[in-house]
Design a protein around this nucleic acid. Structure first.
Length: 275
DNA sequence: AGTGCGACCCGAACGC
DNA sequence: TGCGTTCGGGTCGCAC
């Protein structure tokens, strides 16, 4: 499941492969992927080039000059660069063909990802982008900001860390890891958090995300037909998907619970519920 | 406004 | 073996 580190890896990989190549044609195989008008998508892309790829939270932003193509990979979205002659895989839903006869193909087994073509000036009006909070790797993420956003809420901390309007880009895996590193129980209510907790959250989210980006993410498998990009961060995970395994700090068995409908892993000894 | 939860989707894992 | 069922993941939108 792509989180901020995976999306950053995709961005860097694709920048090396598709920038400034002229788009020859597009093929929208699964129209529901596309939130904007399909006919407009088919009409506008040919002749344009991707001149840059940016990222806001987990959103990829392909810069087409006068338009942006927004792309959210959700859980299993992947981009492949393939020769246009290659057979189309049943999970490839949108294909953008360049005039050097290579394709940028969007692949998504769950069909959960979304794309949206917007005029450049409409970016600030686009809800999904506009409401993104501060990224863990940004210096604007301070303990004061976190305390201000979190301490009024009565939701469990796990739920709060998944709220993209506060910290942008944390998903289920890193939320568990950040809580473990901050020694905060996932069920702790936001209103019970201290400024010191917020400093720990800030430091650990920054450290974990920076490290994950260096490793190329957790779950990245392959982004081209030939060139494999494999995430190495999974070997550093302390709690996520480690139910019944011993905590690396104290040896206590890692527990799994549901918080806000999401599976949540934590060490019951290292992460005490605050009083 | 803040919070809770179902819908979206389908492959994998599980139960019988 | 081969069915059927359940689960999970991020985000949106609706209900309370």
């Amino acid at each position: 499941m792509p989180e901020i580190a995976e999306v950053e890896t995709v961005r860097n990989t694709l920048k090396n492969m598709i920038l400034n190549k002229e788009i020859k044609s597009v093929n929208v195989i699964y129209p529901k992927m596309l939130e904007s008008d399909i006919e407009e998508f088919k009409k506008l892309l040919p002749g344009k080039k991707f001149i840059d790829i940016k990222r806001v939270g987990k959103w990829l932003i392909f810069d087409l000059g006068d338009y942006y193509l927004l792309s959210h990979l959700r859980m299993e979205g992947k981009f492949f660069v393939k020769n246009s002659k290659n057979e189309i895989n049943k999970h490839e839903h949108i294909i953008i063909t360049f005039n050097d006869n290579t394709d940028l193909r969007y692949h998504d087994t769950r069909k959960f990802g979304r794309m949206n073509l917007i005029k450049k000036e409409d970016l600030d009006k686009t809800e999904a982008i506009k409401k993104q909070g501060i990224e863990p790797i940004s210096n604007d993420l301070t303990e004061e900001y976190l305390y201000e956003k979190i301490s009024k809420k009565h939701l469990p901390m796990k739920t709060i860390l998944l709220d993209q309007t506060i910290i942008a880009g944390l998903g289920n895996i890193y939320a568990d890891e950040v809580l473990f590193a901050s020694k905060i129980h996932p069920l702790t209510k936001g209103c019970d958090i201290t400024l010191n907790d917020c400093e720990n959250l800030k430091e650990s989210s920054k450290k974990i995300i920076e490290e994950a980006i260096k490793c190329g993410g957790t779950t990245i498998r392959s982004y081209t037909s030939s060139l494999g990009v494999t995430g190495r961060f999974q070997q550093f995970l302390q709690v996520h998907k480690r139910e019944d395994e011993p905590c690396n700090i104290c040896g206590t068995k890692i527990e799994k619970i549901k918080v806000g409908g999401r599976s949540t892993y934590f060490c019951p000894k290292c992460q005490k519920e605050s009083s």
